[in-house]
Computed example of a mutant assay.
Amino acid sequence: MSQHYIVIATYTAKPEAADRVAQLLPTLAAESRQEPGNISYSIARDLERPNVFTIVEVYEDADAFTAHRESAHFASIGKMQIIPMLESREVVGYSGDGSLN
């Protein structure tokens, strides 16, 4: 199996903005899934802390993730709308092949 570039992002929204972030993230995900090099893009909302979101993205390689961060939809939805509504944001990249062996 080939190596992929996996990104796990944790977004902590300002409490008053959490529902708006929850509305915007699926739009960002839908656009991101259309990118060349994107394999998957999933979002989960913490059940106990509803202002915390975990995003798991899988790309063919690190260059595909770089292209994602430079895309027009990431600029307009992510940078201009979502990120200003966050208290914190952690993004970690990993190399993996999808197996645990």
Rank of each mutant, 00 (worst) to 15 (best):
E31C: 14
H4E: 10
S2V: 15
P36A: 13
S88P: 06
P50R: 02
S40C: 03
I39S: 00
T10K: 03
R33A: 10
V92A: 11
T12Q: 13
R69C: 11
F53H: 07
E35M: 08
V21D: 04
A29W: 00
A30T: 12
T10L: 05
V21I: 11
L100T: 11
V91W: 01
E48T: 05
Q23D: 10
F74C: 11
S40T: 08
D19G: 10
T54P: 01
E90W: 10
D61H: 12
Y94E: 03
M1S: 14
L25I: 06
Y94M: 08
S32K: 07
F53A: 01
S88D: 11
T10Y: 00
I39F: 08
D46P: 00
E16S: 11
D97M: 07
G37W: 05
D63Q: 15
G98Y: 02
F74Y: 15
Y59K: 00
S40I: 03
E70D: 13
F53K: 01
D19V: 12
L24I: 11
G96E: 06
D46S: 09
T54W: 07
G93Y: 04
L100Q: 10
P15I: 07
A67R: 10
E60Y: 05
A29C: 08
V58W: 00
L86V: 04
S42H: 14
A67L: 09
T12F: 04
G78D: 00
L86C: 09
